Simulated assay, not measured.
Amino acid sequence: MAEIVAIKPAVAEGPVVSRLDNGVVRLTLANPPANALSLATMAALTAELDRAKADKSVRVIVLGATGKVFCAGHDLKELSAHRDDADRGRAFFEKTFSACASLMQAIVRHPKAVIAEVDGLATAAGLQLVASCDLAIASHEATFCTPGVNIGLFCSTPMVALSRNISRKYAMEMLLTGETIDAVTAKEFGLVNRVVPREYLNQIVTKYAQTIASKSSLVVKIGKEAFYEQAEMGLAEAYDYTGRVMVENMLARDAEEGIGAFIGKRQAEWPEE
């Protein structure tokens, strides 16, 4: 396997801090106390995702946050400030929700695995951020909610990611009541993969990230793309599509190397991309 080394120190400017270590880039929301998804924050996060896509040394992305709130969702003060615009804020609202949709799709369509490290409250679009990630590990202190119904703004866009992660009944329970659920309930609902003590959260997320980073990046890219594509298809179409994906995957050098290593009882050495 190609050597993975630390390349980039933490960058502490702006609302998102980026740090690359051993193939894992940590993107940290660093605008407490709310870590709100303002336009600037969404632009910064999208830019970091784009950089990670282009950087071959990045194999896994971890998305975390500073402070007691993982992410409080959209910046309601920023949104409300535009109600005095000539169009009562319509253009700014459209720009904001479009940027959010693009950000969430950038995570889902990203060729590299994205893991949410959640310690604190993830609410509204903040919960949407967690649900959009491929994996989510939460501390016991993490909480989750879609409270829009309580303030006259139904969480319609967070609903897209939420309803693609948990059952309809659980999704509607969260959306209609607006109540906060704890991390254990979030795991029962299927929103997060694991719930761990806060003091071990970073260690366990790093273990997950390093495990995935040790795999063929080409195969992870192929598999992630196929997973989300087939999930939107009917059964027969999904089998036809994934069959074609597996044929192309079998023809890739990574499959030849991986299978050969397995048969030969040796460690695989993944080709460089």
Rank of each mutant, 00 (worst) to 15 (best):
A2S: 09
E3W: 03
A6Q: 08
A6R: 14
P9F: 15
A10T: 13
V11M: 01
E13D: 12
G14Q: 13
V17H: 07
S18L: 05
S18P: 10
S18E: 05
D21W: 15
G23N: 00
V24C: 04
V25A: 11
R26E: 13
L27D: 14
P33T: 12
N35Y: 13
N35T: 15
N35K: 06
A36C: 00
T41Y: 08
M42P: 08
M42K: 09
L45N: 11
L49F: 04
A52L: 08
K53N: 03
K53P: 09
K56C: 01
S57F: 07
S57I: 02
V62P: 00
V62K: 04
G67T: 11
K68H: 14
V69H: 03
F70C: 00
A72K: 07
G73I: 11
A81R: 11
H82T: 00
D84K: 05
A86L: 08
R88T: 08
G89N: 07
E94D: 05
K95I: 15
T96Y: 15
T96A: 09
F97L: 13
S98H: 09
S98N: 11
A101G: 14
M104C: 05
A106I: 01
V108R: 09
V108H: 14
H110C: 08
A122E: 15
A124Y: 07
Q128A: 14
L129A: 07
S132M: 10
C133R: 03
C133E: 11
C133K: 10
D134W: 01
D134V: 12
L135T: 13
A138P: 06
S139P: 14
S139T: 05
H140Y: 14
A142V: 15
T146I: 08
G148S: 14
G148Q: 12
G148Y: 15
G152A: 13
L153D: 12
F154I: 06
F154C: 02
T157F: 04
P158Y: 06
N165K: 05
N165T: 04
Y170I: 11
A171C: 11
L175H: 04
L175Q: 02
G178S: 02
T180I: 06
A183Y: 13
T185S: 10
A186K: 09
F189D: 06
V192W: 06
R194P: 11
V195D: 06
R198T: 15
R198V: 15
Y200H: 13
L201W: 03
T206D: 14
Y208K: 03
Q210W: 09
T211F: 03
S214V: 10
L218K: 07
K221N: 07
K221W: 03
K224L: 01
K224E: 09
A226R: 12
Y228L: 02
E232K: 12
M233I: 06
M233C: 07
M233V: 14
L235M: 14
E237Y: 01
Y239T: 10
Y239F: 12
V245L: 05
V245A: 02
M246T: 13
M246P: 03
N249E: 09
M250P: 09
L251Q: 03
D254L: 10
E256M: 01
E257C: 02
F262S: 03
E273V: 00
